[in-house]
């Protein structure tokens, strides 16, 4: 597997532009958005690192060659790309909408007291884990791509590529979500579709690479 192809595939599989409307971008507090995104990305990276670690053993146990795995992952990424391209943008996930819903006693994220900060962190942690880390980030496309990349290019590269791809989600959390129907919202949707198209090309590349491998 070509490393550049794997990296581009990982970034487009994450598709930060598609994920952005669902992220904590709805929150007005940038710090908390970043916290949630960072927790989600970090957790997903750990999960993907685990997948990368056991990838070779799983493949051996299943008696599947690396090239065949690449083809299979390419097929899954094709499906993901099709979904990303044609499906409507992800709606904001309820638990990611301000105010936090996990703690009924808290009504505002502007709480500045010690207890309030602890509550915010606690909420960020939970929200960063579910639904951000799983299922939004730890999705099959990225998970299986990490597995294939680990078999072909090693655990370190696969984990690093996944971490880099996930970091784009943290980067996108710097920006608040666009107003619906605005030019920025259209641009975000366009960028998400562009990512999906790129993922489609990457998936095709993986399939062709797997077919013509030896």
């Amino acid at each position: 597997m070509n490393q550049t192809l794997a990296l581009v595939a990982a970034i487009t599989a994450v598709n930060p532009a598609r994920l952005h409307p669902a992220l904590p971008a709805a929150r007005e507090n940038r710090k908390e958005r970043l916290q949630i995104a960072a927790i989600g990305a970090l957790t997903a990276t750990v999960g993907l690192g685990g997948i990368a670690l056991v990838a070779q053993n799983v493949n051996d146990a299943l008696d599947v060659s690396a090239a065949t795995t690449r083809i299979a992952v390419g097929v899954v990424l094709l499906l993901s790309a099709g979904r990303d391209f044609f499906a409507a943008p992800i709606s904001p996930v309820p638990s990611l909408i301000s105010p936090p819903l996990l703690s009924p006693s808290r009504t505002s994220e502007s709480t500045t007291g010690t207890a309030g900060t602890a509550g915010t962190v606690k909420t960020s942690l939970a929200t960063g884990l579910v639904p951000l880390a799983f299922p939004l980030l730890l999705a099959p496309g990225l998970g299986l791509l990490t597995m294939s990349a680990s078999i072909d290019e090693g655990v370190f590269f696969a984990t690093a590529a996944a971490a880099f791809a996930l970091s784009t989600v943290v980067g996108s959390a710097f920006f608040p979500s666009a107003e619906p129907e605005s030019v920025l919202a259209c641009a975000t949707t366009g960028a998400a579709r562009f990512c999906a198209a790129l993922l489609l090309l990457c998936a095709t590349g993986l399939i062709v690479d797997g077919i013509f491998d030896i």
Binding site: L62, D63, V64, T68, T69, I71, A72, V73, V75, V76, L79, P131, F134, P135, L136, L138, A139, P140, G141, G143, L144
Partner: peptide, 18 residues
């Protein structure tokens, strides 16, 4: 999310046989 994973693993298994 779990259902998506199940579908994806099924697709992998259909393509990547032992």
């Amino acid at each position: 999310g779990l259902l998506t994973w199940a579908v994806a693993l099924g697709a992998v298994r259909a393509v990547a046989h032992p």
